[in-house]
Amino acid sequence: MKSILLKEIRSFFSSLVGYIVIILFILICGLFMWILPDTNMFDYGYASMDQFFSFVPWILIFLIPAITMRMLADEYKSGTIEMLSTKPLKETSIIFGKFWASFILVCICLLPTLLYVVSIESLAVTANNLDTGGIIGSYIGLLFLIAAFTAIGLFCSALTDNQIVAFLIAVFVNFILFQGFESFSQLPSFSGGVDYIISQLGLQFHYKSISRGVIDTRDLIYFASVSLLFIFATRLFLQKRKWS
């Protein structure tokens, strides 16, 4: 697992594409956070990261598939997946290697946003008044959301040998899981209790709860389950090649 993890991270930084992904992410986050109207900090006027945590999932819906799309699709296409299989590696460790590699890469993309926290702290009227606990909680929540998106991206990459197709499907599935249930629950025919249950099935419900800085074991278990479910599904698709 470790060898695959290191290999993926190294290859990410060896190609220009990796840097373009990081720079694009920083640029989009920066635009939303500091320049674009409605979401920027200056208009918002409070020393909190709430704005950031409310728009960042929408960027991750696109960013994470861009990182995971080639993880398995590429191996299929170049046929290296067969090589990997001949090595004394189990499917599970291939998948987890790739999963953690993607997860770490996304986290590296996220690192520069810590600079926002420092900026906000220094722009606040009263020093040392930042809700550090809340922000740490929100980041923890974000990590769990990333894990879920990464597992979904990896699964989509296992479906096809075409990176673009993998990317598109992953964006679609991310979107449905994040926003779909939420929108679906708002249909008038579900009002009166059912809407609450439906919205609980989606990622957004749990993310909203956790990103406030409130860590609830239910939300953690939900995110871990979604991640594991898609990892198992990925394994199922890798195993499929052995069936015929």
Partner: peptide, 24 residues
């Protein structure tokens, strides 16, 4: 927890620059 209004007005460009260009 408000942000400093005066500094926001005066130092807006500086913070925009720091937060976007520096990480890049």
């Amino acid at each position: 927890r408000p942000l400093d209004d005066k500094r926001i007005k005066n130092e807006k460009v500086k913070w925009q620059f720091v937060n976007i260009a520096l990480p890049i």
